[in-house]
Structure formats: C-alpha cells, structure tokens
Simulated assay, not measured.
Amino acid sequence: MEKLREKISFKDMGLLLVGAVIYSIGTHAFMVPANIAPGGASGIALMVNYLTDLPVGALTLVLNIPLLILAWFYLSHRFAITTAVASTVCSLILDMAVAPFCPVYNGDRMLCSLYGGVIVGVGMAMIFMTGTTTGGTDIVGYLLQKKRPHMSIGRALLIVDSVILVFSIFVFGNIEAALFGLIALYAQTKVIDSIIYGGDAGSMATVVTKKPDGIAAKIIYELDRSATLLPARGAYSKQDTSVLLCTVRKSQFAKLKKIVYDEDPDAFVMVTETSEVLGQGFREFKDTI
C-alpha cells in the first residue's frame, strides 16, 4: 500500500476527481434520460436503474465488486486496488455530487448519444491518464484475454459491450436504444483516443530500397523530416539492400509515396498508422508527462 501511495500524485488525484465529475455529468445529464446504455458496468447499471430506479453510481459500484475480486486473484493486486479507488470515486461523485444538482437534457436522443459519448469520453480519458480504469468491461476484457491469449483486449471489450447493447434493446423495449448506444460508444472511444494519444497521429513507412540516399535526401529537403537507414540483406535474393524508416504526419504521406516512387519504383513499402509520435519535429516528450 505504501508503494501505491507513492505513485498516486496530487496531479493524478486531481485528474481523477475532475474526470469523475465530467464522466458523471455526461452519464447523468445525457445517458440516463435518453435510456442509452453504451456498454460497461455503467451501461448495465443504467438498465437496472431504468427497471428499479436505484442510483446509477451505487449500482455501478455493486456490479464492479465481483469483478474487482476476480481482478485481485487473476490479474494483479495493484490493478484491483487502483480500479476500486477510481470506481468508488466515480460512483460517489455521480450519486452525491452530480445527480442531486445537475439538470438533465430531455431532448433529442441523437444529441444525447453524441454529447453523452463525448463528455463521458473526456472524463474517462482523464481517469485513464492517471493509470487506472473505472472497472466494468475493462476487467472482463483483461480476464477474457488472459483466458484466451490470442484474443486482443480491443476485441474482448467489443464482444462484452456488444452483448450489453443487445440486452439494452429488450430492457428499454426499442432497437434505437442499441443504435444510439453504439453511437455514444463510438464517440466515447474516439474522444478517449484523441485525448490520450494526442493529435500528432502519423504514418510510419518502412521502405526496403536500393536507393536510400536519394529518398532520404528528398525527405529532408521536401518534407523537412529525417529518416533512419538500416543495412539489410534479402532472405531470398541474398543481396544487400537498405531499410529506410521514416515517420511523417498523415497530411505528408501522399508526398512521401511520390518521393519513394520517383527515386525507386521497385521499392517495397510497408505503412503503419501511428497513434502518437513523440520527439523532435513532433510533440515533445515533456508535454505528455
């Protein structure tokens, strides 16, 4: 516990509290009145709230308890403790600080799904930035991935959230609940990614070429970027060649392809989309810590 306290800084606590407030506002003001359950333990809690009128925050915490016990035994103690703290803070703020005072929006459900997804996404991103989660499907996803190592966390979460969306059709009595829930889930995911990974997404090109110097020179001159050159040898041809690694902004990628083609039409190019690029010419490391 002492090590855990050392790692929880004032900045993290501030982010957790602010994130919990924003997350609670999005849930209470938009998700609850529109009967939208966009996955997760909170999605199940929203459906139970619709049937029983019990507080959403308390329901979310109760639903997380068995999952936290499983996380304690099958994942890690630290993960279980930090997730329990975040889940408790979010639940208390939702029921005691936000629900009694925050007005709700009873208008168009499309607006509820969009604004609810965006606001909840902002709150969750701030919570994730502290190195923890709000529990729910995150725990289930990690448990599924541990049981089936070949399954990615993203796919595991998608499966669990899809099941919750399907159930919401029967609970709320209309298929629009799942459709609007899907929109909210998509908006929430995009916002989380954009905040956590930043706006410096780019494309990384791995170019196998026999003319690396000409390509590198044009990249430096025309794109104001640099590249890394690595010596290589073809496994089939047994001939010496070079591998050029270069990362550019997405807006520069079309120009990069033209440079490679003009210099070496026989080059072999592999492209990887990067969610964030840090370092010289992009976002500084210090701005992300």
Score class of each variant (00 low, 15 high):
226 S>C: 05
172 F>D: 04
180 F>G: 01
40 G>E: 05
258 K>T: 15
68 L>K: 03
178 A>C: 06
210 K>P: 00
168 S>C: 11
100 P>K: 02
186 Y>E: 01
222 E>A: 14
253 F>M: 12
8 I>R: 09
152 S>D: 02
243 V>Q: 13
265 P>V: 08
169 I>K: 05
49 N>H: 15
257 K>F: 00
252 Q>H: 08
46 L>F: 00
288 T>V: 14
161 D>A: 05
100 P>Q: 06
249 R>T: 11
146 K>N: 12
270 M>K: 08
194 S>A: 13
218 K>E: 15
247 T>V: 15
72 W>E: 05
103 P>F: 01
137 T>V: 15
85 V>K: 02
91 S>E: 09
267 A>C: 12
109 R>A: 09
281 G>Y: 10
256 L>N: 07
185 L>D: 07
266 D>H: 13
213 D>L: 11
272 T>N: 14
17 L>C: 13
42 S>P: 00
36 I>G: 08
58 A>T: 15
55 P>A: 08
49 N>S: 13
39 G>W: 05
128 F>E: 02
224 D>P: 01
66 P>L: 11
95 D>W: 02
128 F>H: 05
194 S>T: 12
27 T>A: 12
219 I>Y: 08
131 G>K: 07
135 G>C: 13
18 V>E: 04
131 G>S: 11
239 Q>F: 01
45 A>T: 07
176 E>N: 07
198 G>M: 09
116 G>F: 06
165 L>C: 10
3 K>M: 08
216 A>E: 07
255 K>H: 11
176 E>S: 11
225 R>M: 10
31 M>V: 02
4 L>H: 03
252 Q>I: 06
129 M>A: 14
38 P>L: 05
244 L>F: 09
68 L>G: 05
41 A>G: 13
27 T>Y: 06
187 A>W: 00
192 I>S: 03
75 L>M: 09
59 L>F: 02
